[in-house]
Write a protein that binds this DNA or RNA. Structure first.
Length: 738
DNA sequence: GCAAGGTC
């Protein structure tokens, strides 16, 4: 029997189908496929990972070993391979033809199958089409030692570099101040932190400069138009001069440029594009988008999400997919419209040998969670849009001259919707019409001077950081989002608009200043080059690793000498970070800092004085909601904090809490005042009757967004409100429709 | 405890 090991279940099925009519079997949830004398069985990614071969008390440790992955589902796949290997007399590594795939198959064969690698074969394919897979099986290659070794070296170098530097950082802190804090560094996370920190310094060093803009405003056909003077002005005098010239002067339309322009339909999405679209539209982090997409994939409603491809091959059978989608009443119209087209999708530049771009499969989803539904809807509509015509719009540029000063305005009006019909809600294209104007027309204009300041470069957010990593070529499509999460976990960065914390900054500083070799471009480039040379068969893996160990040994010797100093630098950062995060004000009794503390016993949080135990002043806190300092102090002396965006005096006996209960209407049941109340227990808001506890009338409220209470009553007697930026009034009673 | 890379 020939045992073929694939990287994942879906690929095992494809290989088996290319070789004949497979019979699907299962062993403890692990599938495998039998085609005559051939068995195709999958791994699930890496089934083995590295571990220190000796206890990790002191760095550096260089002895590592491969051990089975401890995830339950991976174990059943290993057992499956072990069982199948007993009857096998030939072994084929059919994992993805790259360094990671080589390692996955190599470890599966040597550890699970106990195969003789030198006798094993490698299947080489770059797409998953049946003819190519069948051809690859006919032309099996030798095991591919160079590629395997390059992969093994990648694992080992990343490990001995990352683990030991991480350990060194944590130890330095422990040595300096005796405190333990988990710190880490790695080939991918450290360069990522470095570029985030660079931005942080650009922002800190940025000196805002004032500038002035001049606008003119006019009205025609009920449209108000603003036209801009084309230059920013460095001085107020210049701006004022133009303003004065425009006062009491009429504007003349001196140029009118109308052009038809097209917006091409969007390209199919790889994982990176899906992540940035979901950030743009829903503010989902790349990591949560990845998890939601994985969920949709496991339900069978979208294709494989960890793809780098932005192409949809024609042989995908778009008809079948569209037919499936039309079964969903939401998409029936769109799907049948798209069905009428030539069914040729747009194509992006990037390609992936193993998978097409992300697309719906046409299977009907059942019971999607709200976030899954959003991601699914975006994927489906993007899919439709790829087949549609370009959107055509008329772009009008107008030059209006006032005296001798030119001003410009632009308006876009869509003439042919094209793909926007399907994807408008996610494309976020703004349209501003201009009124009818003709050359030479005179206009009554009002000038205006705006005083502005130049702005620092924006912070990265998780989506733009993933994009930057992609651009710099660090990490992989499957891991970038996870690595961003690690930086958050370590406390190196915080907030969605990523801010590098003092801890992050000081860690970078310690690494770059005190042991520049560790983060030097030279060292990482050197490792990379050597891995390429292993791949090309020019260098021996063991020689490379021995060299790396030697180099790291020297670096760590120097690091140890400076350990105390480095630890102190990092401690400064840690201390400042904790202070910023937990200090909510000053103690009115002793003047020391008040901090948010979580009780070890009850796990509940409260505000306590850092002068403890000398000063025992403390305040209770609601257990939910984000607490942020405000710098403000209440009349009663206690600090005011923001809890879930609402200002709140920490002192529970303070009168401000009573005053905080805004009157919002009249109780339809007892006629007393209805008040907006924030629960002392949960911090949540609701509307309650001031006749409480006699009258228990109350209405729930959404916990997020602005609520405007109107001085109006619904016909049911409850007050009317407006939620957020909406325009319609609505009744506060949720059971009351309309 | 500590990486980065696959995968469900």
């Amino acid at each position: 029997m020939i045992l073929i090991v694939a990287e994942k279940p879906k690929v095992a099925l494809k290989i088996a189908s290319a070789l004949g009519k497979p019979e699907k079997k299962k062993r403890n949830n692990a599938p495998y496929y039998v085609v005559g004398d051939i068995v195709v069985a999958p791994a699930v990614g890496h089934l083995y990972h590295l571990k220190n071969a000796v206890p990790f008390r002191d760095y550096p440790v260089f002895q590592v070993e491969w051990v089975p992955t401890d995830v339950a589902y991976a174990k059943s796949y290993v057992k499956n391979l072990q069982a199948l290997a007993k009857d096998a007399d030939e072994f084929v590594n059919a994992c993805d033809y790259d360094v990671e795939g080589s390692v996955i198959g190599y470890n599966a064969l040597r550890f699970a199958c106990k195969a003789d690698i030198s006798q094993s074969k490698r299947m080489k394919y770059s797409t998953l089409t049946a003819p190519e897979l069948a051809g690859a099986f006919e032309n099996l290659e030798p095991p591919g030692v160079a590629m395997i070794d390059a992969g093994l070296a990648r694992h080992e170098l990343d490990w001995i570099w990352g683990m030991n530097v991480s350990k060194a950082l944590s130890s330095s802190l422990k040595t300096a101040v005796g405190q333990f804090k988990l710190l880490s560094a790695g080939r991918v996370q450290t360069p990522t932190l470095v570029f985030l920190d660079k931005r942080e310094r650009e922002i800190a060093d940025f000196i805002p400069e004032p500038y002035w803009e001049v606008l003119i405003e006019f009205q025609k056909d009920g449209i108000t138009v603003q036209a801009k003077y084309p230059r920013r002005l460095k001085t107020e005098e210049e701006a004022q001069k133009i303003y004065q010239d425009c006062l009491n002067n009429r504007g003349v339309v001196t140029d009118l440029d109308q052009k038809k322009r097209t917006r091409a339909p969007p390209i199919p999405m790889d994982l990176g594009l899906l992540q940035s679209e979901c950030w743009k539209n829903f503010k989902y982090t790349p990591q949560s988008t990845q998890k939601l997409a994985q969920g949709l994939y496991e339900m069978g409603v979208i294709s494989y999400p960890r793809t780098a491809s932005q192409k949809l091959p024609e042989k995908l059978d778009f008809k079948r997919i569209l037919k499936g989608l039309s079964g969903n009443s939401q998409y029936t119209t769109f799907a049948s419209e798209v069905m009428q087209t030539r069914l040729v999708s747009t194509q992006g530049r990037k390609d992936d040998p193993a998978h097409p771009a992300i697309h719906p499969t046409g299977e009907q989803p059942t019971k999607l969670t709200a976030p899954m539904q959003k991601v699914y809807d975006l994927i489906v509509k993007r899919f439709f849009a790829g087949f549609a015509d370009p959107s055509i719009y008329q772009s009008t540029k107008v030059e209006i001259t006032v005296g001798e000063h030119p001003f410009y305005a632009q308006g876009n009006v869509t003439m042919k919707e094209g793909w926007l019909r399907y994807y408008r809600e996610y494309a976020k294209i703004s349209e501003e019409p201009l009124p009818e104007l003709r050359k030479g027309e005179e206009l009554e204009v009002t000038p205006q001077v705006l005083s502005k300041m130049t702005k620092p470069p924006p912070r990265y957010n998780p989506a733009s950081a993933v994009k930057m990593m992609e651009k710099l070529g660090i990490g992989t499509k499957a891991t970038r989002a996870q690595i961003i999460d690690i930086l958050y976990e370590r406390g190196y960065i915080r907030e969605k608009q990523m801010e590098v914390t003092p801890l992050g900054t000081k860690t970078v500083e310690a690494l770059t200043k005190d042991c520049p070799q560790i983060v030097s471009v030279r060292l990482t480039r050197h490792f990379e080059k050597e891995m390429d040379e292993i791949y090309e068969g020019k260098k021996d893996k063991d020689v490379v690793i021995t060299e790396a160990q030697k180099e790291l040994t020297e670096i760590f010797e120097k690091f140890k000498e400076k350990e105390g100093e480095i630890g102190k630098i990092i401690y400064e950062g840690l201390k400042e970070t904790l202070d910023q995060e937990n200090v909510v004000g000053t103690c009115p009794q002793c003047g020391a800092k008040l901090r948010i503390i979580r009780s070890r016993k009850t796990k509940k949080r409260f505000v306590g004085c850092s002068g403890y135990p000398t000063c025992t002043h403390s305040y209770p806190l609601p257990q939910k909601g984000k607490v942020a300092p405000t710098e403000e102090v209440c009349q009663c002396g206690a600090p005011i904090v923001k809890i879930s965006g609402r200002k709140y005096c920490l002192n529970p006996e303070c009168e401000s809490h009573a005053q905080n209960q805004e009157i919002v209407g009249v109780c339809p049941e007892c006629g007393k005042e209805l008040k907006l109340i924030y629960s002392k227990k949960t911090g949540k808001r609701f509307v309650g009757c001031s006749g409480y506890p006699k009258c228990t009338k109350s209405y729930p409220l959404p916990q997020r967004g602005n609520i405007t209470f109107l001085n109006e009553k619904c016909e049911c007697g409850a007050p009317l409100i407006i939620l957020g930026k909406k325009k319609e009034k609505q009744c506060i009673d949720p059971t009351h429709a309309t």
